[in-house]
Nucleic acid binder design. Structure first.
Lengths: 332, 332
DNA sequence: CACTTCTTTGGAATCGATTCCAAACATTAC
DNA sequence: GTAATGTTTGGAATCGATTCCAAAGAAGTG
C-alpha cells in the first residue's frame, strides 16, 4: 500500500489538487461542500502531506535542532525543556542531539542547519573552537545557551557565570573559609568564567587560592571524587571548596565524608546549578540557581527572532539573574 | 546571498546538472576533469544540497527519531547513546525528542514518521495506550525499547523485567527480608512487570507483601521520598523495600535515614537500573544492571531491519540479560 | 436582463536534487 | 577505415505539495 499523494486525494474527492491543498492549509476560499469531500477523501486514504515536498516548496521546516555534548545533565535537560515548550507555542518542533564531544558528529549535525533539515540551531556545549562557533553564529540562525563563545560578538543567553562564582565564593569566605580550593573544568567557557569569579572573590578578600584542580575530561560524580581525593592529599588542607557543578560537588562531598572528615565542619563545599543533585546530596548543597528553563525559553525566542527577522537580529548575549541558594554543605 | 542550487553549480562549473549530481553522489561515471571543475564550483559557491529536495527525490531521510517522556534519566540517555552510535555506523542521524508525557506532543512527534520527516522511530516510554502503540508498530517502522507494549505482538528490545524484579526480591529475602514492601509505578508497563516479579518472589518464599506503594505521576527522587514517608507511617514497618528505580531508591534511603533508621540495618533497600545514582547514594545501592547501551544498539539494529527489509521484520521482542549488583543497601 | 463583484475552482508552474535515456565522444578491435 | 564497445555527458522527467493566475460560477445591483 503505497503512500497517498495530494493527487490521489484530489481524484478521490473529485476536486483539483489546488483545492486539496487549500483545505489542507485552511485557506478560507473553499466551499463547505469541497471541504467535506476533501476531508472524507483524506480520512479514507489515510493521507498525510509528505514533509519533504512541503518543506521544499515552503522553504522551511518548522523544526529546530538543539545540540549538547550529552543529555544526562540536569541543566541541559531543563534548558531544552524550556526551549521545547517555547518552540511548541510558535509551532516549531524541537529536536535534540548529543554530540558526545565529537567534532565530526557535531559538524554533521550543524550541517543539518546548512542543508535546510532544520530552520535553526540552539547550541549548548560546543565542541568546535570558539572562533568557529562565532563565525557560524554570524551567518546562520544559531543561538548559544549557557556556554557562550565570546563576549560581545555572539548571540546567546546565559547567566553571568563570573559573577555567580564570585557570589558563592564570597559566601564561602563570609562563612569562615580561609583556605580556598576550586574544582572545575576548563573545557567549557563557563568553566573558565567561573574560575575567574572564584579568583576575584578570593583576591578581594585579601586571600589567595590554595589549590586549583581542573579536569579536561568528563565533569561528573566520578571526576568530583577523583579530584577531591587528589585535593585531600594536598597541604594545607582546604577548609572550603567551590565546585563547578552540583554533581561534581556531590562527588567531592562523598570523598571527603569517606575520608572521615565532616562537611561542612572540616571542609565546606559549594556546588553550582541548583539541580536535583544538590538536594540528593547529604548534606544538601549550597549552590547557585541557574534559571535553566527560562534560559531555554529565551534562547528559543532569540532564535525565532533570528529566523524570522532576517537582518533584525539582536547581537550580543542576554543575561538572566542567578541566585545563591544556601543549604547545609556550607557553614551557617 | 541566496542559497546556491545544483543549477548554479552546473553553470559555474560549465557542466550539466546531471554531472554535478553524479559528482555529489560519487558516481564512477565522471571524468577527473569534470570532478575537479564541479568540486571547485561547489567550494566557490559554498554549495550544500538541499535536504528536502534530496529527501523528496530519494524517498528517505537517513534520520530516525527517538522518543521518551523525559531526557534526564540515566537509562534513557544511555539507551539513546547506544542507538545513536549504532545508527551513525549505518549513516543515520538520530534525533531525540521528549514528549513530556503529553499525548498531543507525542502524537505530533509520531506524525514525523508518518509524514516522512524521519525514516524510523524508537519509542522508550510511550504515553499513548498500549493498543495504539501496537497498532502503530504493526504498520510503521517503529521499535520499542525497555517499555514494551505487549508480549508477543510488539517489536522491541528489553530485559526481562519480571525476572529481574524476581531476582532482586529473592535477594532481599535471602538476606533476611521478611516484611517486604515495594515502591513502584504502574504508569509504565515495565513497572507492572516488576510488580509481578516482586509478588512472585514474595509468594514463592511463602510470604505475602506487606505494603505496595505506587505513584501514577513522576517517578523520581521526590516521589521516592514521599512514598517512603508514607511507608514509614505504616505498620508493620517493613524490613526490606524494593524500589522500581535507583533514583526512587535514593529518595527512599534518604527518607529512612532522615527518620533515624539505618539502611540496611533497620530496612534494606534495593534499586533498579544500576545507574550512577546507585553509586551516588549512601549507602550504595544493591540494584539490577540493565545493559542500556547495548539495548539501544540492538534497538537500532532491529529498526534498521524493519526499515530496509520491507516484510522481513522479526516480530516479537528481544531480551537482553540483566545482572544483580550487590552493594551496601542490602544485608551481607 | 445585463453587468459588476465576489467566491470558488482547476491546473500549470515551481521548489531543487536525482535518475534515466539517448547522444556524443573516445577507445579498441578487426 | 569501419564497426563494436566503453566512457562520459546533457537534459528532460520525476518526486509531491503549494501557489498563482485565469476562468467559471454565484450573488447582488440597477
Amino acid at each position: 500500500m503505497a503512500r497517498a499523494t495530494v493527487q490521489d486525494v484530489a481524484r478521490t474527492a473529485g476536486v483539483s489538487v489546488g483545492t486539496v491543498s487549500r483545505v489542507l492549509n485552511g485557506s478560507p476560499a473553499v466551499s463547505e461542500s469541497s471541504k467535506a469531500k476533501v476531508a472524507a477523501a483524506i480520512r479514507h486514504l489515510n493521507y498525510r502531506p509528505l514533509a519533504s515536498a512541503r518543506d521544499l516548496r515552503r522553504d522551511r521546516t518548522m523544526r529546530i535542532l538543539a545540540l549538547a555534548k550529552n543529555l544526562y545533565s540536569p541543566v541541559i535537560s531543563e534548558v531544552f525543556r524550556g526551549a521545547g515548550d517555547a518552540a511548541a507555542l510558535s509551532g516549531y518542533v524541537t529536536l535534540i542531539a548529543p554530540t558526545a564531544g565529537d567534532m565530526e558528529r557535531e559538524q554533521q549535525l550543524v550541517d543539518m542547519l546548512r542543508n535546510g533539515s532544520v530552520d535553526g540551531l540552539i547550541m549548548f556545549s560546543p565542541t568546535m573552537p570558539d572562533d568557529d562557533v562565532e563565525e557560524m553564529a554570524e551567518q546562520l540562525s544559531v543561538v548559544q545557551v549557557c556556554e557562550i563563545a565570546d563576549a560581545e560578538a555572539a548571540f546567546g543567553v546565559s547567566i553571568d557565570d563570573r559573577q555567580a562564582a564570585f557570589d558563592i565564593t564570597r559566601h564561602l569566605i563570609r562563612t569562615g573559609g580561609r583556605r580556598l580550593a576550586m574544582i572545575g573544568t576548563r573545557v567549557a567557557r563557563s568553566g573558565r568564567l567561573r574560575e575567574e569569579g572564584f579568583r576575584r572573590a578570593v583576591a578581594e578578600a585579601g586571600l589567595s587560592p590554595d589549590h586549583m584542580l581542573f579536569t579536561d575530561g568528563d565533569f561528573d560524580f566520578h571526576a568530583g571524587r577523583h579530584l577531591a581525593r587528589e585535593l585531600l592529599g594536598m597541604r594545607p588542607l582546604p577548609d572550603a571548596v567551590f565546585c563547578g557543578s552540583d554533581t561534581v560537588a556531590a562527588g567531592c562531598v562523598r570523598e571527603i565524608s569517606d575520608a572521615g572528615l565532616r562537611v561542612p565542619g572540616d571542609i565546606a563545599v559549594a556546588g553550582f546549578d541548583d539541580s536535583i543533585q544538590a538536594e540528593m546530596c547529604v548534606p544538601e548543597l549550597t549552590t547557585i540557581r541557574q534559571p535553566a528553563y527560562a534560559m531555554g525559553q529565551l534562547a528559543f525566542e532569540a532564535l525565532l527572532a533570528r529566523m524570522t527577522e532576517p537582518e533584525g537580529y539582536r547581537r550580543g548575549r542576554t543575561f538572566l539573574p542567578h541566585e545563591l541558594v544556601v543549604r547545609d554543605s556550607t557553614n551557617g
